[in-house]
């Protein structure tokens, strides 16, 4: 009899432990589910910024190549035929600002591309080369400046000594 009651006692202890384990499993599962459906941990986040993490503006996934007023927002390039060939081939190493600052004719763009291929690790552009150069000479044409241009964009202000 003594053995029987001891066994019963042990069985009860195991039963209680099992219940406890089950309870924690349910809690954990609920937590995991919450994480899955609320990946930004919305309701847990405190309002104060967490200094451990640097705020990075996540690009709106759908319009990574958003165009506003005819300008490709990510690069500043004019939206025209050949835009994406330029974006994909000409903004990997350097910024598009280096492209738009420069005004060259067809011949000099071809020479520049060749120089980048020979010395700067630019890949073979294939039939994109023609598309890219057409885009550049059409949208960023050479401007005549002469031997000395007029002063431009003067911001007038009342001079105070």
């Amino acid at each position: 009899m003594e053995d029987y009651s001891k066994f019963k006692q042990q069985a009860r202890a195991i039963y209680r432990m099992m219940l406890l384990v089950l309870f924690f499993m349910i809690i954990t599962a609920a937590g995991v589910l919450y994480l899955v459906y609320n990946p930004d941990l919305g309701s847990f986040r405190s309002t104060a910024p967490d200094s451990e993490y640097v705020e990075v503006e996540a690009p709106e996934e759908d319009d990574f190549d958003k165009i506003v007023d005819g300008i490709h927002q990510r690069t500043g390039l004019v939206d025209a035929e050949g835009l994406m060939a330029v974006v994909n081939n000409c903004t990997n190493c350097h910024s598009a600002q280096l492209v738009t600052q420069n005004r060259m004719n067809r011949e000099r763009w071809f020479t520049t591309i060749k120089w980048m291929q020979e010395t700067q690790n630019l890949w073979d552009l294939g039939k994109n080369e023609e598309i890219i150069v057409n885009y550049l000479v059409t949208n960023y044409p050479v401007e005549k400046k002469g031997r000395r241009a007029n002063l431009k964009d003067i911001q007038w202000y009342d001079y105070q000594e």
Partner: peptide, 11 residues
């Protein structure tokens, strides 16, 4: 930036 024809590089 003043050269004509324009020269390649940062203006």
């Amino acid at each position: 930036n003043e050269f004509d024809p324009p020269a390649k590089g940062n203006q």
